[in-house]
Design a protein around this nucleic acid. Sequence first.
DNA 1: GATGAATGAGAGTTCATTCAT
DNA 2: CATGAATGAACTCTCATTCAT
Lengths: 203, 203, 203, 203
Amino acid sequence: MPQVTEKTRRTPRQSRSEATVEAILEAAFQLLEADGIEALTTNHIAERAGVSVGTLYQYFGGKQAILAGLAHKRAEAARDRIAEIVIAGPELGAVRLIVRTLATAFEGSPATRRALLDALTAEGGDDVVMRNHVTFFDMIAGKAALGFDLSPEAGFVLTHAVVGLLRAATIESELALNPQALEDELVRLMEAYISALLVARSA
Amino acid sequence: MPQVTEKTRRTPRQSRSEATVEAILEAAFQLLEADGIEALTTNHIAERAGVSVGTLYQYFGGKQAILAGLAHKRAEAARDRIAEIVIAGPELGAVRLIVRTLATAFEGSPATRRALLDALTAEGGDDVVMRNHVTFFDMIAGKAALGFDLSPEAGFVLTHAVVGLLRAATIESELALNPQALEDELVRLMEAYISALLVARSA
Amino acid sequence: MPQVTEKTRRTPRQSRSEATVEAILEAAFQLLEADGIEALTTNHIAERAGVSVGTLYQYFGGKQAILAGLAHKRAEAARDRIAEIVIAGPELGAVRLIVRTLATAFEGSPATRRALLDALTAEGGDDVVMRNHVTFFDMIAGKAALGFDLSPEAGFVLTHAVVGLLRAATIESELALNPQALEDELVRLMEAYISALLVARSA
Amino acid sequence: MPQVTEKTRRTPRQSRSEATVEAILEAAFQLLEADGIEALTTNHIAERAGVSVGTLYQYFGGKQAILAGLAHKRAEAARDRIAEIVIAGPELGAVRLIVRTLATAFEGSPATRRALLDALTAEGGDDVVMRNHVTFFDMIAGKAALGFDLSPEAGFVLTHAVVGLLRAATIESELALNPQALEDELVRLMEAYISALLVARSA
DNA sequence: GATGAATGAGAGTTCATTCAT
DNA sequence: CATGAATGAACTCTCATTCAT
């Protein structure tokens, strides 16, 4: 049974280890893109990465951990970019920029995106986006003059509405939605909600 | 390899067949609740249902088809209930009632709910909720006087925002969100969005 | 991890199943003799038996269970033979016959004998010889006019002295002990002990 | 593959080396007690001992060698104590003292005792107790006035009856034998046998 | 001498699926 | 229609051991 709980077995300190970890993640991403989640096995990943399975298991607890590692890297990058946006504080276009950042956070084919998104939620709480959603959106909320008394539920809705819709859009590829139009609607949704929160607050 | 494409092999007409199908679905649901998705195997389901694996394969194309069957039963029930709500036309509370119906559509533990939700999306387009979202929300849209020129993207957002958020809420069980407060926020989100759509339309 | 606790997964009722079980045990014995315990794998056993691994796992919980099955078959046969000896009641030679029966209970090479003996003890209490030693030796004890108040410890010594020595003799093959002389000494040991017990009892 | 043949690679003379060897043995013993033989790996031992695996392999030929080292330490201590007993020559109680010494030779849980006992026999002839059993019991035999013409088989029985029974008693822990009563029976067994040997000799 | 990252053969095991009965 | 014994490809994961640093 895989050790899902313990993501990293050996925290790499030396450059050789770091390169190995990087090679494993890169190999996993390539295979994911090429053959899909079904064909993604630890043996294949190790082979493609040019290391032995044993080495792979030295750094990752199993397939899920690798997927999670891949997803986290992207999620963190997205979060950093959003943080920059908020700090830079382009008053009006902030919501649109954030939506756009999230929409492009996960590179790769729809199937890959879905796999990574699932890996994030499969961890059950270790999800960076989720775990940090309060801190994260407090920043936005502060910028938007909502103050800090955003309820957990409102924060949750603010965070997950966009991510959830992007997830759904990724899966529902055959609907052939217009990305631009979708972005417009997402922005409309978020701005309408934020306005409603502001109104409720001032009441 | 499971036959994802062909969901039902034999459409039951006789009562004995119906009972068998029912027993299989019920067995699957019980095992899902009791042991989780990991322990859910066709052999176990057949055993619990009191039929042989062979018989199970006479009615279902495989594990995924069973899960999908389970999910569809719920999804259809939810859709029917929502249709009634819309027809009954309780002007003001409609959005809230719909949200509530969706929130309670899937019984069972969070893990079970997630598994069923995933089964729905895993089908890749056969999803009743998704496939019918235009028809479905056109009804709502009509009631709400939005007219029929709801863009596909707006319809998509309208449908999936709620479902996606409920999905996220189900998974993120440790956040311990207040169901009532969450419902309030969902209603706020939807009503704000609908208003925004109305405003945009009239402009 | 193998399911050591649950020896048989499917109790065979039909002749086909019985033949399969028999084939597996026979294959295991042959491989044990030919290549030793190290080379004994479930895959090899299945191949040699002419069945698939899956089938093997339908009947046995794993390698240990197969070994245990093999050992039990022999142990039971030995016990039956000893029971016959006691019932037949050849007054003087009984001890020698019992010793001889135990000495020849496990066919095969020393390594095989050791493996089977170990499998018996590895079960931790399910061992037929051990578990039944009281019942078993009460019969002998009765014959020997010791009565039924044989202490558990005396019964234990009676049972295990011979088995333990045979085990040791099997392992210590390089000592090249003379089987006949060893048998003589074992008989001497047992008869001396029984006499001592009788003396103690009459005192 | 473990190098069973070559037990020690480097015989330590310096104190640092001795400390390392000691740390490894101690670590192995602790892990054996805590987690059982299954969880005992060279990597774990090295980690617990505070050395690298490489260092471990500098001093021990492998896992078996470590286990053997552990067992030998105890076996040698027991032999020395028994030698003292024989030399001290307390005529009547000697057998009882020897039995008691053997019974307490291996500290630790039953599982640990079994593992160490097995390590001793697994060496296949390098076993100190076994290899030296003639020399060893000749001393006792001499003391007991049996002379030097003790047959190898009688010597074997003399040595292994006690050890084998203690092994069996260790494994069969659920029988909950009374240690004192068991000791009594072992003494009875040995004294009866020695007497029988004496009688046979004088005949 | 010490290190510890890397190895990799191969073990055990699962389970969706088939098809002869 | 039902059965369930049989299948077997494929998977995850271990761990004793080596050797370049």
